[in-house]
Design a protein around this nucleic acid. Structure first.
Lengths: 338, 338
DNA sequence: ATTAGCACTCGAAGTGTTAGACTGCTAATG
DNA sequence: CATTAGCAGTCTAACACTTCGAGTGCTAAT
């Protein structure tokens, strides 16, 4: 990726910003009107042609203006984007909204999704933080019907999981509470690995409970469930999605769990930008993603991001993703922390 | 809605089935090929013209075949559709899938959504059953950090709700357990109304807990949260949604909570068919819905349904919705029953 | 009541033309 | 030597026009 002259950089930047705003190929004339630069259109044409030779811009056809290639966007994101922090007042608004929410991961995720979608014009999605070595805080057995028992698990950080168990023989609540107390004594405070290896003399029901315990805890450790999404309708308005099959590809990726699981592992604190599917997702050639992981490395992390057309306001998207990831990281250490 | 002759009924039925299958206006010639009836095309043309006069069919333009109007679909659904029960083997497959799932409402909902979407070619959605007068089975207070406490509520039928509480002063688990035991003694087994009116001498923290208790329980009684959806991508493939704005209207309705809340209240056990938005939802003029409520009337009910193009296989959709509603009703009485 | 037959309508698809939006290049310019 | 004016060349979008065939509606015959 050879270096561009300063002027080329600035032209590339302006072309990209203009194209992002208008969704129309940028002609040399339109460029001059919008940029306020004092050159003739011929000069701009020459420079644009050079940028095209270098692979940063294209032509849909001879007599059309220029639009960025994926390489052009990449250069823009990596070299031309300076400070992408959101303006202070926007940060304030967002922080304010977060402070008003209840202290509950589900609500925060919902809120984060909404904020991401609104400030970045894309579709947003966010996965619940997954605790790497969850330990059991507490379990409870609650009789709901003579032969039906609800097992409630509270894991580290207030993650709650439940499951019904069918009994062979009816048991009353007193007996169940005793059993729960016994199991709490044996298992509370232990992590999955320890629960698994620990061997205790147990009756039938106890064994069943422990089996489900292990099952729910390991599901916790690597599951694809809990995802919150927002902004799909908004992004479908973008002109690139008049094309039915592109739109469908977007919706399909956005909804599929498989896609989510493939979202890349970058360290917490960095924002990753995937432009035009970047080889990995063939159908998403007209889409870009801005992703980040949040939480505390090695302990509990989740992924959040924005999915939009390649013609995306990268500065806003990156700024928002970064800021929301910070807030969510704070949430994780507040709620899940030791 | 004047009565049609038997022949007109049969012609209308065949036109609708053909149009549903092919998505193309049905010409008199195509009609004869597919129906196997032994008339000349002129006769069919005459009858079609009559059906058009009566408002059951239309013409996109002079030299095109006929397609059903909303009124035509309505007549079809109400008068021409005989037994819509799914074939036994399909019912068997579905029941089998349900038996393999874990005994948990969330999983059942997910499964129901998938089954609905797959067997009816539409997008499906299903709301969690809402208990009208939920009562508190059990509450638990669990310390997660010195000044953070998790309140876990178990309501009737194993519905679990949780919320974090911030303490002014640190408290240890022993104290919290005592407090929980006290509150359980006072409030367990009571329904929302009783919890609300009951007055007990309480300290600061206790009051806070009860406040949240009331809040979570009343949210339970009429909330729009817990919804499971499936099949959006599939329905977007239908040719009616090449039109970007129709597609967007569909996605938008499908995702919006407001739309869900407006879904009609029919008694449990009947299936309702809304054709072409039917005045209520302007944007959904090219969509139909097949809806049913499930559960136990006056106790706990939810809504489920399928959203697709007006050109929908109504027989399958109705059959599937009815059958899945029955299964879910069974689930409700098994899990939530007295 | 049904049907054969034909005139008529309309859309889909193809062709031709034109206006104008841009570019690329060349030769002139400071 | 970078810049620019100017112009030829290219391509699209829009429109008008034509043709083809699918399909109807009607009428007169059975």
């Amino acid at each position: 990726m050879a270096d561009l002259t300063l002027r080329q950089q600035s032209i590339l930047g302006i072309v990209i910003r203009t194209y992002v705003a208008t969704a129309q190929p940028v002609s040399s004339k339109a460029f001059l009107e919008l940029s306020g630069l004092d050159f003739s259109s011929a000069t701009i044409r020459n420079e644009m042609a050079a940028l095209e030779d270098l692979g940063y811009l294209t032509h849909p056809h001879t007599s059309a203006g220029r639009m960025p290639t994926d390489k052009g966007y990449r250069y823009f994101v990596e070299r031309l984007l300076g400070d992408v922090a959101l303006p202070l007042d926007e940060r304030k608004t967002i922080r304010h909204q977060f402070h008003q929410a209840r202290l509950e991961m589900g609500q925060w995720m919902q809120l984060a999704a909404t904020v991401l979608a609104r400030t970045s014009r894309g579709a947003s999605l966010i996965t619940a933080p997954q605790i790497e070595q969850p330990y059991l805080k507490h379990l409870e057995l609650i009789s709901t019907q003579p032969k039906l028992v609800l097992l409630v698990l509270v894991l580290q950080g207030g993650v709650v999981r439940q499951q019904m168990i069918v009994l062979r023989e009816p048991m009353d609540q007193t007996a169940l509470s005793q059993l729960a107390a016994f199991l709490n004594g044996q298992y509370a405070g232990l992590d999955l690995a320890t629960v698994r290896t620990k061997s205790v003399e147990l009756g039938d029901l106890e064994t069943e409970v422990v089996r489900i315990l292990v099952q729910l805890m390991s599901a916790e450790a690597r599951q694809s469930a809990d995802v919150v999404r927002d902004g799909l309708t908004g992004v479908l308005q973008e002109p690139e999605f008049v094309n039915q099959s592109d739109a469908r590809a977007l919706v399909s990726a956005f909804e599929s769990p498989a896609f989510l699981n493939s979202l890349v592992n970058t360290p917490v604190g960095t924002v990753q930008v995937v432009i035009g599917g970047e080889g990995r997702w063939r159908e998403l050639s007209s889409c870009s993603m801005v992703l980040a992981r949040y939480g505390t490395e090695g302990f509990a992390t989740g992924t959040l991001g924005v999915l939009g057309p390649t013609r995306m306001p990268y500065d806003r998207a990156i700024g928002t993703v970064r800021y929301v990831a910070e807030l969510m990281s704070g949430m994780v250490s507040d709620l899940y922390g030791e």
